[in-house]
Design a protein around this nucleic acid. Structure first.
Lengths: 236, 236
DNA sequence: ATGATACTGTTGCCCTGGCTACGAAAGGAG
DNA sequence: CTCCTTTCGTAGCCAGGGCAACAGTATCAT
């Protein structure tokens, strides 16, 4: 059952430092279940009781917050090998703080919380490794949230866009960017309205800062973009 | 040297589950140093190399982000017994992601990172407890950041204020609130301008929602406040 | 091809909130 | 008490961006 997903599992930071054999030995101990879901499915709604953490085997999930007015904020986008729900699990919340939505057809591994948090009698050395890996993962998530705050605090749309695009530029290491989110999702990621974002993107195109068409975008003036980004950097 | 601070240390979540004797035994192993500082001192600036994590012994520190335009965002306020810098330490950043400022005259314990992250030969059982406590602390910080994002994503000032005041109401368990931040700091916490915030507070007073004078504030209409808060809740 | 269904770009209206400036109130030091 | 500094409340001005509405365009199934 899990054998087909081993290539994903061995690359998962949770199992770093563990051999493929040890991972296989752990799996039955976890009593984990695989769930398949289609694009748009809500896997977990904010407020639901949480008994397991998730690991993306295939597809993509969005972690997002919604309010009753229909406003949505995308907190994070997770790809195969990445965990979600481990933060609330180890903080002892007992509930899902955010909504989990499959943004593509996906396969998700759910691992019961207590199987990870309580020491297992059989493979206890591996368990210590798991806890240390988990500490690093959770700390990484907290840093990610810190960066997320850095986006959200920016007051002008141009600053937000510049920050986002500059980060993409650093990640993809090219001024020819491939936008991983469509306009609506990007707007929800930056916490702005789609139309206003399009308007600002149009302005930036007119000024020769960027050029774009659909999901491809070119930064034509890197220094200017960098300067815009610096204007709001928390880390000078 | 550390004996005088033991009452704080035993209450620190980092040492939960450890006896006073064990904590005393750990301290020399940590080679920690105590630093005293005055109100307004910058303890660490964003971007500086990080070699230690901090523990507030007395006073209060603000974790904040600043940009070159002078905009400031207060990420968190930490009181005696609370840790800071452990997130970036365990994420392996190597640098302080935010600025640390003493908002009151304070005494801070700095513990070198490697003393905590590397297993210590002498008191290794205690070390396992430390790591597990740390995981819980870091997860708690991540949840705190998640809540911080919930504030920041709110689009109207009234929503932000309502969220903040309602949280205070829940914390202090009374509709007579004592505001722990002055107007300027509160504005920086909510990421709005002080004058506009005062204006909105005035409006809310005119409408009979709240009443206030300086650092004391009364919520006169809890249900309405609650409804305002619900309108943007991520957790229905 | 031909709809049907996304997704994307554009525009006008208008309100929220940032900025500046100023006066009042509250502490603090002498 | 008096002066000085800090904090707080108020007002006017105006640009940034939310909202709604629509037109253009890519994708897909029939």
């Amino acid at each position: 059952m899990f054998r087909e997903w081993l290539p994903v599992l061995v690359q998962c930071p949770l199992f770093r430092g563990l051999s493929q054999e040890k991972i296989e030995a752990l799996m039955p101990c976890f009593t984990a279940t695989v769930r398949s879901c289609g694009k748009g499915d809500i896997l977990r709604a904010a407020g639901q009781m949480q008994t397991a953490i998730g690991l993306v085997l295939a597809g993509e999930v969005h972690i997002q917050q919604e309010d009753f007015s229909g406003n949505r904020l995308i907190i994070g986008v997770f790809s195969p090998g990445e965990l979600f729900g481990e933060v609330s699990a180890f903080a002892g919340l007992g509930r899902w703080p955010n909504t989990v939505l499959a943004s593509k057809d996906s396969h998700i591994l759910f691992i019961p919380i207590e199987k990870i948090s309580r020491p297992c009698s059989r493979v206890c050395d591996a368990h210590q490794t798991l806890i240390r890996n988990m500490l690093e993962i959770v700390a990484g998530k907290a840093i990610f949230m810190n960066n997320r705050i850095s986006y959200l605090k920016r007051k002008s749309m141009r600053e937000k866009l510049a920050a986002y695009l500059y980060d993409l530029y650093c990640q993809q290491d090219s001024e020819h960017l491939n936008l991983p989110l469509n306009r609506e999702n990007l707007a929800d990621y930056l916490n702005v309205s789609r139309s206003s974002m399009s308007r600002e993107m149009g302005r930036m195109r007119n000024e020769g800062l960027i050029d774009f068409h659909r999901s491809s975008l070119v930064i034509k003036n890197i220094p200017a973009m960098c300067r815009l980004n610096m204007a709001s950097l928390g880390e000078p």
